[in-house]
């Protein structure tokens, strides 16, 4: 089962897609989010999100600053103030 991942900035919706896993640099340590993760909210340190589209593929890195992550039933939503791909 894929994980629904959304990356939103104030200016636009950057990503809205289904991926395998996303590794998020939380302020209290990195965490990976897979499908079916428990509801969770965390602030994000400035750094790179690692998006794994497939289980064994190479991750795609998206650098974000001023981020916030929310995991709910709908998947992972990352709110970021600035994004550079």
């Amino acid at each position: 089962m894929p994980l629904h991942f959304e990356l939103v900035t104030p200016a636009k919706l950057v990503r809205s897609e289904d991926v395998h896993m996303v590794v998020v640099p939380g302020t209290e340590g990195e965490f990976g989010v897979l499908e079916g993760h428990a509801p969770f909210m965390s602030t994000i340190a400035d750094g790179a999100l690692k998006v794994y589209r497939t289980e064994n593929g190479a991750p795609e890195e998206i650098r974000i600053t001023g981020g916030f992550a929310e995991v709910g039933d709908a998947g992972l939503t990352v709110l970021a103030e600035h994004v550079s791909e």
């Binding site: 104030p10 939380g26 302020t27 209290e28 428990a38 509801p39 969770f40 909210m41 965390s42 602030t43 001023g66 916030f68 709910g72 039933d73 709110l79 103030e81």
Partner: peptide, 22 residues
């Protein structure tokens, strides 16, 4: 749904307030 917070609710709220203002 019991949501977990990291750091706790108040710290997240404090971090989000300026962002909300923006």
């Amino acid at each position: 749904a019991v949501t977990e917070y990291e750091p706790d609710e108040e710290e997240i709220l404090a971090a989000l307030l300026p962002r909300y203002l923006k």
